[in-house]
Write a protein that binds this DNA or RNA. Sequence first.
DNA 1: TACCTCATTTTTGCATTCAAAAAACGGGCA
DNA 2: TGCCCGTTTTTTGAATGCAAAAATGAGGTA
Lengths: 222, 222
Amino acid sequence: MLHEEVVSRLRGMLLEGEIPPGARIPERELCAALQISRTPLREALKVLAADGLVVLLPNRGSRAAKLTGHDVRNLFEVCQGLEALAGELACKRISDEQLAEISAAHAAMVKHQRRGDLTQYYRCNRTIHEAIVRAADNPILSVLYESVTSRIRRARYVTPMVPERWSLALREHEGILNALLRRDGSGLAHILRAHLRHKLEEVTHAGFAEDSEAMGSDNAKS
Amino acid sequence: MLHEEVVSRLRGMLLEGEIPPGARIPERELCAALQISRTPLREALKVLAADGLVVLLPNRGSRAAKLTGHDVRNLFEVCQGLEALAGELACKRISDEQLAEISAAHAAMVKHQRRGDLTQYYRCNRTIHEAIVRAADNPILSVLYESVTSRIRRARYVTPMVPERWSLALREHEGILNALLRRDGSGLAHILRAHLRHKLEEVTHAGFAEDSEAMGSDNAKS
DNA sequence: TACCTCATTTTTGCATTCAAAAAACGGGCA
DNA sequence: TGCCCGTTTTTTGAATGCAAAAATGAGGTA
């Protein structure tokens, strides 16, 4: 197994909660599970630690990182900055095909909202946001965006929404699409920032902001 | 030597050009130089590779990353987004002490500009930008900012400036300070974006954007 | 000379090993 | 019983060893 594969496999386990936040990371077992020795596993752990998904305690092993309310706030703030930037750049660089894709995803999203299908709604939603970042055509931005959003994905795309919030979000998305069509970079940036600010409010309100991803089992001794 | 120390030591070598961009990284020699074995060195290399400072070629070792003109553009763009965000947040959160520090640094910078001391000017300049990020009080942002800026630091803080550009930069900095004093977040964000956009133009104009940090020796076989 | 081939050396990536640190256990004592 | 201290076991972090891959270089051929 390649180094990058080990990293992404582990990242997946951490993000999916397969290794719950705060839990001790059992090197031995993981080695057995992934069929690798400790050396490459530990290399991957250091990489993930640098990315904030794992915390290394000197001489005491590593644990899956646990997000605090502050972390969630900070991540959402950075996400706002990155999406706003992506929006600005996307307006300059987006192709007609990419725009068509986003329009289609938007239409599908509206449909799912009408039917009350939150899961499918979120899927389209995410497609749109990711497409905007892709349209910005900046690999550095893409990597940072992926790193930041992956850590708040569950909070962002699992939080339930009350009807008013949901329709507000939809109106914001109308604005996003319009701004894109008009290639109005600063307008789009503005809407995206507000959109994410509102999302953070929802997430916070839903109680995700406290130990966000730590919901469910919590094997850590603080 | 601690893991983090190895990483930051190596990062320093790469950023300072002690290991020139594109150069092969000699594991053996570095182990000897740092007095460590290959295992911790390789762990550090993977971390730096994830950060973009090193490229790993499977079965062919690692090399110091070489920035292309596109990389420089992309990094500056992301930097714009991050500084704009930092400005917004700083206006909400900056303390009077922090504001005083920035004012002092600004005054010193003006003095150095009058005397034509570019090095000292840049030192104060960097202090100001970093202080704004610190005032934003968002560790996630700080880490990303450090990662992005460290990679373009040499381009940013070494490029010579023609007098008109220099005085424009200074006027922009007056605007930055004023916006901070007025706690005008969006105004500050706007100025910072323009400031960095202009900086990128200077850097590009100075030819830094092509193999930016590859100036000097270039031991790589492309 | 230019180029191809194949043996030799070096380097890489990973498994294993080893010393030191931390945790777990258990006996002694109040 | 509850707690402290010394011992054993486990786990961690790093060095070493080893097989496979790549680079090097010498010799042969056109």
